[in-house]
Design a protein around this nucleic acid. Structure first.
Lengths: 235, 235
DNA sequence: GGCACTCACATACTGCGAGTACGTACCCAG
DNA sequence: CTGGGTACGTACTCGCAGTATGTGAGTGCC
């Protein structure tokens, strides 16, 4: 629909090298399906968005849909991946230019994430419906290589700021905690009466927590008992 | 099924005052429905658990189900409420006897929650499917008066430990953050290869964060810029 | 530049599952 | 013992995910 009846009637590739005209059209309908699905999933949720509505919106039929995707869940996953990818890129972009101070970097990442999490599509598709539709395992696999990867990177740079030696698993744990904190806070922010004020509160709170963190790290305080001793208090 | 053919052929109430025999039977089938639904929702998820399976398991028909519940979602909500209620009680119980030190209280609550979150029914019904099935608004209403209430209480006692003056909304924000952190961490714990070791790591990490918190509070460090000044740094 | 081939769809159908309309037996009040 | 209402059971409808199969338009090949 974008470039039909091209000027020179190109014999082969319209734009992408190695792709024929058929492939280009095919990719176009696939994109259309994902676009419409993203919209309907965001507006009505996974269960309430019917495939009939989706194919009608994309102006194709179910045959096309089942040609490109193995089923409704696969379509959702394609949407999920794109939303996650976009979010990850946005956060990554905000991280550029903060190579110096890891604490500043962390705050910049937090701000970027608080922006992203206010997009309805991210809230609904990634945070709300994602775990239920994909199952936690697949959900985690996806997050692992996108938004969570960003958080992990930031956490690592913060943790190593004070010459800290932590093994991979402990770093992952810290990242999980911060990631969960930010997701939940983000949800609260975007459903608040005044999202901007709520975002400021969240930033303040996490900033405060980071401050405490910073103090401990800079004073060379080690991890309290449990981890290094291999067991927690049982009281 | 528990007390049919009673000894003296009681004319009215079998056990509960104000309840007739019919009411008792009615309550029994309702419980049976919730029991079976809880099991099937936990094992297969909300979408994959069919009402036919549920009524078959409870040895009734759909007529009975729709007499007690307005629909599938209402049934889920009943299950959700019970699971949440049980979880909240477990945490509350663990909180008893920690009136003295709020920091100890916080750690005790954390341990209890890490226990609860490993129950499959809590993970699946409350954390994974809850937000998607109920929608975030209703989900939040439910949490507000159960598990989240516990977290809020703990957070408040910790925050006021150092003569801190924070308004309600800021306390809610801190509670949201910790609640999200614990939920996410709990998920990671229960899906880890070694849940016990993972739980220890989480406890260590959050304990460490709390330590930093404690240091700041005890040194009368106020909130960094943003909140009290009413605006965040824009860099 | 014709021709078979296959890719990218469209059409028509099936089965399952949530929800509904209505019938009925049993309990309790009077 | 009798009317009424409650607590179900039965039989259906409708919508939706998934499938089986047809078809026409590019595309490689000679």
């Amino acid at each position: 629909m974008s470039k039909s009846s091209v000027s020179k009637l190109v014999p082969k590739v319209p734009s992408v090298p190695g792709a024929s005209r058929r492939a280009a059209y095919s990719a176009s309908t696939k994109r259309a399906l994902i676009d419409v699905a993203e919209q309907l999933f965001t507006d009505h949720g996974y269960a309430a968005a019917s495939l009939d509505q989706i194919v009608a919106g994309a102006q194709v039929t179910k045959g096309a849909l089942y040609h490109h995707f193995s089923g409704k869940q696969a379509l959702f996953e394609a949407v999920f991946e794109r939303v996650e990818s976009d979010a990850s890129k946005a956060v990554k972009k905000a991280l550029k230019g903060h190579r110096a101070d890891p604490w500043e970097k962390a705050l910049a990442g937090l701000r970027a994430f608080l922006e992203v999490v206010q997009e309805p599509r991210y809230r609904r598709i990634v945070i709300q419906e994602g775990p239920a539709v994909l199952g936690y395992e697949r959900y985690r696999e996806q997050e692992e290589r996108s938004t969570f990867a960003n958080v992990l990177e930031i956490v690592k740079s913060v943790l190593t700021a004070g010459d800290w030696e932590l093994d991979e698993e402990m770093q992952q744990t810290f990242a999980r905690i911060f990631f969960g904190a930010m997701s939940s806070a983000g949800e609260a922010v975007s459903s608040a009466d005044d999202p901007i004020a709520a975002a400021v509160r969240v930033e303040t709170a996490i900033g405060f927590i980071l401050s405490g963190f910073q103090v401990l790290v800079e004073n060379d305080v080690t991890l309290p008992n449990a981890f290094t001793e291999g067991d927690a208090a049982t009281s």
